[in-house]
């Protein structure tokens, strides 16, 4: 069994709200680890709208999603939070008492934590791959249908069908072309949103006869016991075509699902986590919820609300992590001790 990492606070979600919580906790000498299912920080800002301007962040007349994430990253740098990316928290188990909470936390990558507090900043939930509307596709998942690729070697010598027109679809088409027996790329139209140089390379491979490009959509799968043999596709004129394949990878982007949070014994209301508005604590003492994932009377799903919620939650986390400390409120503009923590004094 892997060693447990002990920490003051485990933050679930590396979106803007989870990132800023690192700052508010850090000012109170609370060490944090951050887990996120995406392989990069920034949450929706980085995944859904990195280039779109946001106009309602105080002090920024306009800032892009990625710009905000980059600034937050610089702002929390002094606190040295550790990030665990590409992992999803699956289990949160309460070990402690109401007054001295302690939690055991496990992720999909097998990482284990023991944390005095948990801050759920999971936004709309965890990003998970979108599944195409193909009847019976579940029976082939894991064995023949994959929504992500861990080891390219697994596809050596296989007949691979890649579906989609974005960067993931094109990147894997190019990467697997030399490993797989045959790669077929299927997309609903002969235009691709992927990076132009990937599209050019793909077209080159098609001209050389190394990759097959088909236009259409998958409407059915044929095979036995989870082993795929054929994909039935329909082109835009309604004609059906068969693609022989023993592995299929649909790349249709990501969607948000609440995921394992539903299993942690927290009270939920319409897939949101109810909290109080003093501490933003959930029905389990020591577990907090901030940002889009929480709900309370008057809740606004704004990034700025999540920042405020993180600041208040941090005050209560401090009570758990440093129970004997006399709490004095300080400003970053004037407090030498805060400025030392920020590395500016």
């Amino acid at each position: 069994m892997a060693d447990k990492t002990t920490t003051d606070c485990l933050i679930i979600g590396a979106g803007p709200v989870g990132l800023f919580a690192v700052f508010e906790l850090g000012l109170l000498d609370i060490k944090a680890h951050v887990v996120d299912i995406l392989d990069k920080i920034g949450g929706q800002c980085a995944e859904l709208y990195p280039e779109k301007p946001i106009y309602d962040i105080p002090g920024f007349p306009s800032v892009t999603g990625q710009g905000l994430v980059d600034n937050l990253k610089a702002q929390i740098e002094p606190f040295g939070a550790q990030f665990h990316l590409g992992e999803m928290v699956t289990e949160v188990e309460a070990l402690g008492s109401e007054t001295a909470p302690l939690f055991s936390i496990k992720t999909t990558a097998g990482t284990e934590f023991e944390a005095k507090s948990v801050l759920i900043a999971a936004g709309g939930g965890s990003f998970q791959p979108k599944k195409p509307p193909i009847p019976g596709i579940e029976a082939y998942e894991q064995q023949s249908v994959f929504y992500s690729i861990r080891r390219m070697e697994d596809f050596r010598g296989r007949n691979v069908l890649i579906v989609g027109g974005g960067d993931s679809a094109l990147d894997w088409t190019l990467n697997l072309a030399s490993i797989a027996q045959r790669v077929t790329l299927l997309h609903r139209r002969d235009e691709f949103r992927a990076a132009p140089h990937s599209v050019d390379k793909m077209r080159q491979l098609v001209r050389e006869g190394i990759v097959d490009l088909r236009i259409g959509q998958v409407i059915g799968l044929e095979g036995h016991d989870g082993r795929l043999q054929n994909a039935l596709c329909r082109d835009n004129d309604g004609k059906t075509l068969e693609v022989k394949c023993d592995a299929m990878m649909p790349f249709f982007g990501l969607t948000m699902k609440l995921g394992p949070i539903a299993n942690w014994g927290l009270s939920l209301h319409e897939n949101l986590v109810p909290v109080d508005t003093e501490k933003f604590e959930t029905s389990t003492p020591g577990i907090f919820a901030i940002g889009d994932i929480n709900t309370y009377p008057g809740k606004l799903k704004l990034i700025l609300s999540g920042f405020h919620e993180g600041a208040l939650a941090a005050q209560k986390v401090q009570r758990y992590v440093h129970p004997d400390r006399r709490v004095t409120f300080q400003y970053t503009t004037s407090s030498t001790s805060l400025q030392k923590k920020l590395g500016v004094a």
């Binding site: 979108k130 195409p132 509307p133 989609g164 027109g165 974005g166 997309h187 609903r188 139209r189 235009e191 949103r193 959509q217 835009n236 249709f252 982007g253």
Partner: peptide, 16 residues
Amino acid sequence: SSMEEDMLDFAYDIRP
């Protein structure tokens, strides 16, 4: 628009 077409690639059960 072409931007919307790009996003429609990710929609569920897309039709003409």
